[in-house]
Nucleic acid binder design. Sequence first.
DNA 1: CTTGACTCCGTAGCACGGTACGGAGTATAT
DNA 2: ATATACTCCGTACCGTGCTACGGAGTCAAG
Lengths: 132, 132
Amino acid sequence: MKSLTIGRAARLGGVGVETMRFYEREGLIPEPPRTFSGYRQYPQETVSRVRFIKRAQELGFTLKEVRELLSFRASPRASCRDVKEKAGIRMEDIDRKIEDLRRMKRALSKLMAACEGRGSVSECPILDAMER
Amino acid sequence: MKSLTIGRAARLGGVGVETMRFYEREGLIPEPPRTFSGYRQYPQETVSRVRFIKRAQELGFTLKEVRELLSFRASPRASCRDVKEKAGIRMEDIDRKIEDLRRMKRALSKLMAACEGRGSVSECPILDAMER
DNA sequence: CTTGACTCCGTAGCACGGTACGGAGTATAT
DNA sequence: ATATACTCCGTACCGTGCTACGGAGTCAAG
């Protein structure tokens, strides 16, 4: 099992070098051992961990939540239910966000439909609707 | 037409005093005249401007975009079409965001469905899916 | 006239997730 | 041997939209 330099680990994890160091500062990946000259030596495991983080982000989890998920993973006391609960919170948040965006979309498309797209701004129904 | 202190204008605009000063720094509202002792004296107009900003935000516009909309409003060279164009960009962005969220939602609900919600984390399908 | 609410200013901080800088030392390929 | 690429560290900065602080001065009501 050979270890990886930060650059290689970053490439394999799909992030930048600075992001690796950022994750370390944030406690998302453990501090790796160092070479004699101070270079970080990452085990393969850290690469999967970085990918875990990225995948969780794609599902909408914040880094704070990712930290929790990671701590669940580490603790044998944690149950599947804890994870599902977090996922449920995520879901609700996603639903809320979708709803907000739909509202915006409806309002905006109504305004856009009212706007012919010609004439001066002084008669623009879009701006008009916002003015008052 | 009497002028308003920052506190009154803020209340009427539905924002905080600090927000008024922030908007001024950001060039979103004009610098008002001052009293002898340095107090800002806002015309009613500024209140509508603040409300304009708030409404545009509700439609998903960033403050940067709001600045553009405001400059359209000010310039007689700008046309309704410019505004509609910005609104179109907003729409596309909203659609993209909704799509992203839907993707997350789909993925997440699939994972949640696979998870019974009991047992140890070591067998949690949600975490499993993220690990690799 | 006093009290309390308001205002002034500049600067700093928050959350979020990174990104960049710069000067030094180290590793690697040729 | 040398050129090039990589790594180290601390700190500062990005964008987004505010929010907070603190000490001093001012205004309005009673």
